[in-house]
Simulated assay, not measured.
Amino acid sequence: MPLHSRIDRSLAGDAPWLFLSPHLDDAVLSCGALIEAQAQGREIIVATIFTEAAPAPHTRAASSFLRQCSAHDAGRLFAARKAEDLAVLQDMGVQPLHLGGVDALFRGRRVPKPGSSAWARLLPEITHRYPTYRFDIALGRIARGDRALIRKLQHDVTRLMAQTKAGLLFCPVGVGRHVDHLITREAGMGNSGNVVLYSDFPYDLVSQPDTSRLARQGFVPWTWEQGLASKVPRIRQYATQADALFPDGTIPLKPETYFVPGGN
């Protein structure tokens, strides 16, 4: 059978692969089965972009997230999340990198308005780049203030590709429209010659990638079904997140979906 896409050709070799993860669980949630299988024969690097919170006062959206995680302190929660991620990836034989970006829930405006500090204690939304989850973070409208962040991340990812000599760069396709996922995709698209997009799980349980748009961009779907059962215990290792993500306790087994530049 001819090797019809870049990922097929890469599978035949042993060049390193670099995965960009928006948050401290996304790469394993979306790509864990492929990552663990490939880590047996090649170097796998998972670079997580948004790995930090910020001190209070917090928006209602951020406070709601903390309650969902049964956490009272954002700094301690994110320290625990980083420890979880390191443990999971090291167990899988993967090299973890934490890039230190601030999660959208906690990302402040670069320059608060004059005299806003007193108001910020009463209404933290006025000093945050994404004041709400539903109407800001989840609508996929990247704030103008994050344009410089995207440029910096593109530079950082290009540098990482050179340092790791990665043959493929995996980025989220952005199912669910979470701004951090879209920013992560944009950070990787500067390396379009190597990029593979992955479908964002568990967002893709309720929404689907825009396959027509991806086809127009030259991407073809590719699935990985081996070792899916091994993902469940890995996901549960993210103990601060698993119950909030899967409140009924069931983690569905779903083939991992990727979009690969075809025919080149």
Rank of each mutant, 00 (worst) to 15 (best):
D8Q: 10
A12K: 05
L18R: 06
F19Y: 09
G32A: 10
A33V: 08
I35D: 12
A37Y: 12
R42G: 09
A47R: 01
A47T: 03
A47D: 11
I49K: 01
F50E: 00
H58N: 08
A62W: 02
A62V: 06
S63I: 00
R67C: 01
Q68N: 13
C69G: 05
A71W: 06
A74V: 03
A79C: 10
K82Y: 01
L89W: 08
Q90H: 05
H98I: 05
V102L: 04
V102D: 11
V102Q: 07
D103Y: 02
P112T: 12
P114W: 12
A120D: 13
P124R: 07
P124V: 05
E125A: 14
H128G: 07
R129G: 01
T132Y: 01
Y133D: 08
A138D: 13
L139E: 15
R141Q: 14
R144K: 12
D146R: 00
R147G: 14
R159M: 12
L160N: 07
Q163Y: 04
T164A: 14
F170Q: 01
H178T: 09
V179T: 14
I183R: 03
A187L: 04
G190M: 06
V196T: 13
D204I: 00
D204V: 00
D210P: 09
T211W: 06
R213D: 15
R234F: 06
I235E: 08
R236S: 11
T240N: 10
L245N: 07
F246V: 04
L253N: 09
K254N: 13
T257F: 01
P261V: 03
